[in-house]
Simulated assay, not measured.
Amino acid sequence: MGQRQAEILQELQEWLGTPYVHQASQKGAGCDCLGLVRGVWRAVLGQEPVTVPPYTADWSETDRQETLWQAAQAHLVPKPCEDRQPGDILLFRMRSDAVAKHLGFVSHIGPAPSFIHAYSGHGVVESPLSTPWARRIVACFEFPERTS
């Protein structure tokens, strides 16, 4: 495992137990799935590349725009999902007919894969990357290299 992967995983461990709070991104205080990615970005890479505008729980659903996927493609590095490694970011479509709008970090690969995510009603947790979760994955990304 590379140094950056180890740094991401160490940071994620510190987020476990953070309560789920819509639109928040503060370790220990609250975050949603996007807020978890934002908070880990700040810890590992520094300042966020853009200011995230306010969003509702049902954002993008009515207009069917893949807003989160487009933002991920703009700021993260896409990679084949079959090549995912610990520290990579997974994008999920929670229903087959819905836009992709859930994110999580790969924490383990192999015979017992898992991921860390902020999940409504549960907070930041590590979950098995079971078949029901795995079939919802639509894209995989990694953080870009540091620029400074």
Results as ranks from 00 to 15, higher is better:
Arg4Cys: 02
Arg4Thr: 10
Arg4Asn: 00
Gln5Met: 09
Glu7Val: 03
Leu9Tyr: 07
Leu12Glu: 10
Gln13Arg: 14
Trp15Glu: 08
Trp15Asn: 08
Leu16Gln: 13
Gly17Ser: 10
Thr18Val: 06
Thr18Cys: 09
Pro19Asp: 03
Pro19Thr: 05
Tyr20Asp: 07
Val21Phe: 02
His22Gln: 07
His22Met: 03
His22Trp: 12
Ala24Asn: 14
Gln26Lys: 15
Cys31Asp: 04
Asp32His: 04
Asp32Val: 08
Cys33Ala: 11
Cys33Gln: 04
Gly35Phe: 04
Val40Cys: 09
Trp41Glu: 03
Gly46Pro: 00
Pro49Gln: 01
Thr51Tyr: 05
Pro53Glu: 07
Pro53Thr: 05
Pro53Gly: 03
Pro54Ala: 12
Tyr55Asn: 06
Thr56Trp: 04
Trp59Ser: 13
Glu61Arg: 14
Asp63His: 12
Arg64Leu: 13
Gln65Tyr: 06
Glu66His: 02
Trp69Asp: 14
Ala71Gly: 04
Ala74Asp: 03
Leu76Lys: 00
Val77Gly: 04
Lys79Pro: 00
Gln85Thr: 09
Gly87Tyr: 04
Leu90Tyr: 03
Leu90Thr: 02
Leu91Asp: 05
Arg95Trp: 07
Arg95Phe: 11
Asp97Glu: 13
Ala100Asn: 07
Ala100Phe: 01
Gly104Ser: 08
Val106Arg: 09
Val106Ala: 08
Gly110Asn: 05
Pro111Gln: 10
Ala112Asn: 11
Pro113Ile: 02
Pro113Glu: 03
Ser114Pro: 03
Phe115Lys: 05
Ile116Asp: 13
Ile116Val: 15
His117Glu: 15
His117Ser: 15
His117Gly: 13
Ala118Lys: 09
Ser120Thr: 05
Ser120Lys: 13
His122Glu: 11
Gly123His: 13
Thr131Glu: 15
Thr131Gly: 11
Thr131Asp: 12
Thr131Leu: 15
Pro132Cys: 08
Pro132Tyr: 02
Arg135Asn: 08
Arg135Ser: 10
Arg136Glu: 11
Val138Asn: 00
Ala139Met: 05
Ala139Trp: 01
Cys140Trp: 01
Phe141Tyr: 14
Glu145Met: 05
Glu145Pro: 00
Glu145His: 11
Thr147Gln: 14
Thr147Asn: 11
